[in-house]
């Protein structure tokens, strides 16, 4: 039964990859990547049970944390073009333009 769930998850991950490759806009790709990450978490958990080593759940938990942070980081980067303090850098560039 774990094997059937794992195969279904793998097929779903391939479909998410299709959308990741074909997605017309950036946000389609981010959505597909986020969905792919959720499925990865589930697949790691199921594989842990399938192979009789539930210690894999620690890795799944770490993946869930990383997936969320990664999605938010990508979105922030594409909105502000910077991962640091965007406001300060904008002000700095404005000052540069004003001095020139």
């Amino acid at each position: 039964m774990f094997a059937a769930t794992a195969i279904a998850l793998l097929v779903a991950m391939v479909l998410a990859l299709v959308r990741l490759y074909a997605g017309p806009s950036l946000y389609d790709r981010v959505l597909a990547a986020n969905s792919f990450g959720t499925k990865t978490v589930l697949l790691i958990a199921v594989m842990g049970f399938l192979t009789g080593r539930p210690d894999f759940l620690d890795i799944a938990l770490l993946y869930a944390l990383l997936n969320f942070i990664g999605t938010i980081a990508v979105l922030k980067f594409f909105r502000y073009r910077s991962l640091g303090d965007a406001v300060e850098e904008k002000a700095a560039s404005r000052n540069k333009e004003a001095s020139q």
């Binding site: 958990a45 759940l57 620690d58 944390l65 909105r79």
Partner: peptide, 26 residues
């Protein structure tokens, strides 16, 4: 651990979906 994963997904997936939709709208 499974409950922790479930609780984390329960809170983060609507948040990230909202963030993606909001970014696309903006």
């Amino acid at each position: 651990k499974l409950f922790l994963i479930g609780a984390f997904l329960f809170f983060t997936s609507p948040t990230s979906t909202h963030a993606i939709a909001n970014a696309a709208l903006v």
